[in-house]
Amino acid sequence: MPVPEGSDDAPTAPPVLAFFDIDNTLMRGASLFHIGTAAWRRGFVTGRDVARFLWHQVRFTAVGENPRHQASARAGALRMVEGRTEQDLIELANDTYEHSIHLRLIPDTVALAHEHRDKGHEVWLLSATPQVMAEVIAERLGLTGGVGTQAEIVDGVYTGNLVDSLMHGQRKADRAAELAAARGAPLVDCWAYSDSRNDLPLLQLTGNRVVVNPDAALERHATAEGWPILTAKPASVRAARRRIRREGRTVAAEPQQPPA
């Protein structure tokens, strides 16, 4: 006998997760540079360190990510946090958001994230940026949560080492799969957004993928695969929002859980 719609005994539809990259997807440029600038204002790093962050920003904006730039940025970020407390980094992340990040958010991509949220989807930020920065951006935007690169903390102080590998490439896809599995979310229903060829493992993981202002390699791949490509043109943005409304399964709101 069918269960009446709305009954307490009716089966609960599984959740839908939408994963968003941050740098050059949700915001213009590299978040790490802006963290470095905020750290300089607080005396955490030198002007030379900030100059290196600036060079990384220029290269990232011009040619996208590559392993050498990622390794250099990671080393700089670990030097910056070594010996700092958890509270130091929380304050630094909020300072970075207030002074820089919110000014560089891409309104169209933020609108897509909110479109997913309004459909009852969980919206997760996945980024190589430090964990605390990913969490602050997600909180400020009213999203489910943020997952970034986690630096090691011992007795409340950062050691300058990583807990695991950089939240990048295959590691990002693995974490997305863990989040979906923990929530019982079918990957075929999930969504992923990124600008970088390095996020192909994440994009290929989900049933719905959208490339945002892609680098040349990702644009070629997306074109060959017939994936939607979002540009800054109003028509492109409207089409992306209509696709979420049309194809994104609506999910009843439930209390959100912390990362597994």
Rank of each mutant, 00 (worst) to 15 (best):
P67N: 05
A38T: 10
A181S: 11
R140A: 05
R104T: 06
G64H: 00
G142V: 04
G64S: 05
G226K: 13
I22T: 12
T96D: 04
N94E: 15
V45D: 00
F19H: 12
G142P: 01
R74A: 10
F20Y: 13
V58A: 12
F20I: 07
R183T: 11
L187G: 07
S31A: 14
R41P: 00
V132S: 02
R209Y: 03
A239Y: 00
L54N: 11
V58Y: 08
H34W: 15
N198M: 10
A71N: 01
L166A: 01
N213F: 08
P255G: 00
R79L: 14
E139M: 04
H114V: 04
I101C: 07
R41F: 03
P259N: 00
Q204M: 12
A253F: 03
L202N: 07
S7I: 00
P2Y: 08
L125F: 04
E152M: 14
M80N: 09
E122S: 12
G145Q: 06
A113K: 11
Q204P: 01
A177T: 07
S31Y: 05
S194G: 02
A182N: 09
T37D: 13
V212C: 09
V110Y: 05
P186N: 08
T96N: 04
A216K: 10
A77G: 13
A260V: 08
I229P: 03
V45S: 00
A30H: 03
N213Y: 13
D21W: 07
L205F: 11
W40E: 10
A111S: 13
F53E: 09
L89S: 07
A62C: 06
R245F: 03
W55I: 13
M1N: 05
H168V: 06
A77K: 11
W55T: 14
T129M: 01
L32I: 11
R238I: 00
P255E: 06
W191Q: 01
S100T: 14
E98F: 02
V211L: 07
I137Q: 02
T37N: 10
D49K: 02
M133D: 04
L89W: 14
V132D: 08
G76D: 13
G120M: 09
N213C: 06
V45M: 01
F33D: 04
L78E: 13
A224Q: 14
E98V: 09
A128G: 13
A182W: 05
P4W: 06
L200P: 01
T149Y: 00
G47P: 04
H114R: 15
A181C: 07
H121C: 10
D195E: 12
L17F: 00
A75N: 11
E115N: 11
G6Y: 03
S165F: 04
L126C: 02
H114Y: 00
A182L: 10
Q70Y: 02
S165Y: 06
I35M: 14
L143A: 06
E122G: 12
E219N: 14
I22C: 12
A252D: 08
W124Y: 02
